[in-house]
Simulated scan of single mutants.
Amino acid sequence: MKKVLSVIAVMMIAILCISAQSVSEKSEDQKTLTVYAYDTFCGDWGAAGSIIPAFEEKTGINVNLVAAGNASEVLNKVMLEGDKTQCDVIVGITDDIAAKAYGVLESYDSPYLETIPSEYVFDAEHRLIPFDYGFFAFILDKKSGITAPTSLQDLTKDEYKGKVILIDPRSGSSVGVGLMMWTKNALGDNWTDWWSTMSQNALTMTSGWSTAWGLFTEGEAPLVISYTTSPIYDETGLQQALVFSEGHEATIEAAGIIKGTKHRSEAEQFIDFLLSEGQLDLGMANAMYPVNSSIELPAEYNNAPRAEKFFLNTDDQVAAALKQLTEAVLK
């Protein structure tokens, strides 16, 4: 009997050892991809909530998602960490700060690049690959009954005094900066005159989008600077995105693979997922347009007109414009 028990004990130990080895090998084989992204992407209402689990389920790749602030802060984190960074993929770098990012990125010719209209591909070397885009625009509350302005200059008229909410570009708000560059590109040499007039004509100039949008939805003013896609969540049908023939400032969000990553294959799969199955979730969560032209947009986008003419800028141009505006008007 003792001999039988001894044999059984040895067999059980062997089985446990084999099982432990199997679990260990599985753990070693399972890859973990570290993704740095901006806070909104990672937040409770962000796209990551649906995209990351779907990607993990499809590929079997674990994702270590790191929220690192706004787009500039995400990039700064990678640059400060240098060769020691754990980041494999960076998400949310916008076209206006792209030049700073190129040095830490590797090129990737994703097969989904052919689905992206060429006008939104701002990096010919494909170190940053666009995943969504939008246009800054003024949103009108139609229940106000006011006549819709048809240009930036219209907003300087007396009939709109106290009826417009702006965002201060000095705050670092992407919408405030977008408005600044929009006026500079659309109005030409005398663009700061617009800001001089609007500093008196606007109801207020807030420090960020959330405050501005809150005032607008509370009925404090019938016009607010935002995005052409902002009305996609409007169930009342009373918000109208105004598209001006003079053109609009665009913003394009992109993702890239960090130079020297040890998980190149996994990083490529993640980029491809963002450009395919993840496209609609990205667009809806970010209130932006998906870049993949083959994606069928839901009815919510019927109230989100695209601008036919748009402008893009580099970070140097933004810095120069901010300096000029601060010295001329916003002292």
Rank of each mutant, 00 (worst) to 15 (best):
residue 149 P to H: 09
residue 149 P to N: 06
residue 150 T to G: 04
residue 150 T to I: 13
residue 150 T to N: 14
residue 151 S to I: 08
residue 151 S to Q: 04
residue 151 S to D: 06
residue 151 S to W: 11
residue 153 Q to I: 02
residue 153 Q to D: 09
residue 154 D to R: 04
residue 154 D to N: 09
residue 155 L to T: 00
residue 155 L to F: 08
residue 155 L to K: 03
residue 155 L to G: 01
residue 155 L to Q: 04
residue 156 T to R: 03
residue 156 T to D: 02
residue 156 T to W: 09
residue 157 K to Y: 14
residue 157 K to W: 07
residue 157 K to C: 10
residue 158 D to N: 11
residue 158 D to M: 12
residue 158 D to Q: 12
residue 158 D to K: 15
residue 159 E to D: 04
residue 160 Y to K: 05
residue 160 Y to C: 05
residue 160 Y to P: 02
residue 160 Y to E: 08
residue 160 Y to N: 04
residue 161 K to Q: 15
residue 162 G to N: 05
residue 162 G to W: 11
residue 162 G to M: 06
residue 162 G to F: 09
residue 164 V to S: 00
residue 164 V to G: 03
residue 165 I to R: 00
residue 165 I to G: 00
residue 165 I to K: 00
residue 165 I to L: 14
residue 165 I to S: 01
residue 166 L to R: 03
residue 166 L to P: 01
residue 167 I to A: 00
residue 167 I to K: 03
residue 167 I to D: 03
residue 169 P to E: 10
residue 169 P to Y: 13
residue 169 P to R: 11
residue 170 R to A: 15
residue 171 S to N: 10
residue 171 S to R: 06
residue 171 S to V: 09
residue 172 G to K: 11
residue 172 G to I: 13
residue 172 G to H: 12
residue 172 G to C: 14
residue 173 S to M: 14
residue 173 S to G: 13
residue 173 S to R: 08
residue 173 S to E: 12
residue 173 S to I: 09
residue 174 S to Q: 13
residue 174 S to M: 12
residue 175 V to Q: 05
residue 175 V to W: 09
residue 175 V to K: 05
residue 175 V to A: 13
residue 176 G to K: 08
residue 176 G to P: 07
residue 176 G to Y: 09
residue 176 G to D: 07
residue 176 G to T: 08
residue 177 V to I: 15
residue 177 V to S: 06
residue 177 V to Y: 04
residue 177 V to C: 04
residue 178 G to S: 08
residue 178 G to R: 08
residue 179 L to A: 07
residue 179 L to I: 07
residue 179 L to Q: 12
residue 180 M to Q: 04
residue 180 M to L: 15
residue 180 M to W: 05
residue 180 M to K: 03
residue 180 M to I: 05
